[in-house]
Write a protein that binds this DNA or RNA. Structure first.
Length: 261
DNA sequence: ATGGCCTTCTTCGAAGGA
């Protein structure tokens, strides 16, 4: 089973790139963030044409998440039931497998803007309730994948040397991510040897990608049951080289797991 | 090297992103 996450920064603009990427990388799940379009504009037919279905939670201009999958999921949850939020940043769905149901939770965590801003306060509150939601999900489901754009670089090695900001790396943010991981999740990327200076996002400005001035903020977190059978996790930098790319690029995990299709 | 880019809309200037 292959699962990928990709913040596409407007699905309207990036749809052809997403379809092309799926043809080249026929993953079982592709979790998208920052659709930036309302639900009625989600082009399900474009995915059906290449053998996928989807569930989504869109929003005009900002946010919006979708799970593209081979089979239709069930028990779809849009937004965290523990956190009243007009912003569409979470979608979860359950898929059948030989080993029992697997819960896929796709998140677009708040950016936070600047440390101590209102948006930063919102980010930390959002994370706190995400942790409470995950606690509940993990008591219901044994096999859980929490993936998406976390807008937090877990460690200093996930941050390019010239990074000047505090946001995305501040201790309270990292603590919030750690509390989530402490529920019994594992950063799939760090289960394996990786190149130094591996990032998943690069600023459009200042030739960020060419200088490899990036951050690793897109993650695939997997439950204990999936850790031992996770065979690989990598960042696919190819889409970042395309004309008019998203500023994020896909992260992919390969897990030895048999879905029912 | 955070001013410098990209996307969106209440669109030609501003907000948000990270």
């Amino acid at each position: 089973m292959m699962i990928a996450t990709w913040n596409v920064n407007s699905l309207k603009i990036r749809l052809p790139q997403v379809i092309d990427w799926l043809k080249e990388n026929p993953v079982d799940f592709l979790c998208l963030q920052e659709l930036k379009q309302d639900n009625e504009f989600f082009d399900l037919a474009a995915f059906e044409e290449i053998g996928y279905t989807a569930c989504w939670s869109g929003q005009k201009t900002y946010n919006g998440v979708a799970i593209i999958s081979r089979t239709k999921g069930k028990d779809v949850v849009r937004n965290n039931p523990l956190f009243e939020d007009a912003q569409q940043r979470l979608i979860a769905s359950t898929y059948d497998s030989e080993q029992g149901p697997i819960r896929v939770i796709n998140v677009y965590c708040p950016n936070g803007s600047a440390v101590d801003s209102d948006k930063y306060v919102y980010k930390l509150a959002w994370y706190k309730e995400l942790t409470n939601f995950l606690k509940s999900e993990m008591s219901t489901y044994q096999h859980v994948i929490l993936t998406g754009d976390f807008n937090i670089a877990p460690e200093d090695r996930d941050v390019h040397e010239g990074y000047k900001g505090d946001i995305l790396i501040s201790p309270p943010e990292r603590k919030a991510l750690q509390e989530l991981i402490d529920l019994g999740l594992h950063d799939a990327f760090r289960l394996f040897e990786q190149e130094e200076k591996s990032f998943s996002w690069w600023d459009y400005r200042m030739m960020g990608f060419r200088r490899n001035a990036g951050l690793r903020i897109d993650h695939i977190l997997i439950s204990d049951s999936l850790k031992q059978i996770c065979e690989a996790c990598w960042i696919d930098k190819e889409p970042r080289r395309l004309e008019r790319p998203s500023d994020h690029t896909p992260v992919v995990a390969d897990i030895k797991w048999d879905l029912i299709t």
